[in-house]
Write a protein that binds this DNA or RNA. Structure first.
Ligand SMILES: [Zn+2]
Ligand SMILES: [Zn+2]
Ligand SMILES: [Zn+2]
Ligand SMILES: [Zn+2]
Lengths: 163, 163
DNA sequence: GCGTTTCTGTTATGAGATAACATCACGGAC
DNA sequence: GTCCGTGATGTTATCTCATAACAGAAACGC
């Protein structure tokens, strides 16, 4: 994450057995939905899970090859689209980045809201009442709301204390 | 707006005396804030007000010259940044577009939420409880929220009926 | 096996945004 | 009025983000 501060940051992605298990569970869900968890899809999901933070598409492209070889953009963008369709990743529009879904047993594309630390990049996916409130406001105005983008920026507790 | 439907759409921008008055009021507010409403800033605001809908930055660039001459990108992006700082325009991150602020007596940059019709592009700026709810959720998670992006997509009443 | 569908690899291009720097207008100090 | 500092503009170039189009390979159903 491009920090706006000068203190250190901890990172909290998955690795080792926890990463393997998350990938296996993701594959199981994909298969049970009648689709395939192909190598590029698995690789992109792995990169997102390892990071634990929003990642820029071109960072995924750069890190794609295990040997340091970059991927071609469509490879990664197609995988991201697939992962979004299955609710395993989300796009953060306000920073043009992608993040692994924090939900565990979600079965498909779903609404999400995010708290994003502009300093360290720590991002929390919440499924609070935000969607309901905005959907209700939309209904009151005659809109049939199909999809929401809810992203709140600020400082996490750690970065606020460090500042 | 790039429609996802095949029926006709009405548009609701400002023109004539109403447009002139809105521009004059905007200039008054800028001046009272100790800044200047320069020609490019006025021109971009005028284009946004005339449209009444979110407009892509490169559409503003293309329409910038009264005689059909395009502007250079920094000209328009700088004006947009200025208008956002003064709460006269907003960026819609989910569609990478810009819209004139619907508020009247706002005195500077402010939070906003949007209802966006994916069919006709009609966009309504609302200042409902969405911000409060997400800010409260952020506070509960230890975040100091500084800025929110709240955008709801769907169909407006007219497009739903026409569909 | 064989046709159909889906996914992948690859090339090229379109769309969105900003860095850097020279030049120009404005406003205050003198 | 002239000088000068500040902020805005014009201009060039470049950077980031994302998709179109098409050929080839892999999986699937029969
Ligand atoms: Zn999620
Ligand atoms: Zn932080
Ligand atoms: Zn507004
Ligand atoms: Zn509509």
């Amino acid at each position: 994450m491009n920090a706006v501060c000068d203190h250190d940051h901890l990172h909290s992605g998955l690795d080792g057995a926890r990463l393997d298990r998350a990938l296996s569970e993701a594959e199981a869900r994909v298969v049970s939905a009648g689709e395939r968890m192909t190598p590029p899809r698995r690789r992109v999901l792995s990169l997102l899970l390892e990071s634990g933070e929003p990642v820029k598409a071109y960072d995924l492209i750069a890190r794609f090859g295990e040997d340091g070889q970059a991927a071609k953009p469509p490879t990664v963008y197609r995988a991201l689209e697939f992962l979004e369709r299955h609710g395993m990743a989300h796009r953060i529009a306000s920073i043009s980045a992608y993040v692994a879904c924090a939900g565990q047993e979600v079965g498909g594309s779903h609404a999400a809201a995010f708290l994003i630390c502009d300093c360290c990049g720590v991002t929390r996916e919440i499924d609070g009442p935000g969607q309901d409130v905005i959907a209700a406001a939309g209904a009151a105005a005659g809109y049939a709301i199909a999809r929401t983008t809810i992203e709140a920026h600020g400082l996490c507790a750690a970065c606020r204390d460090a500042a």
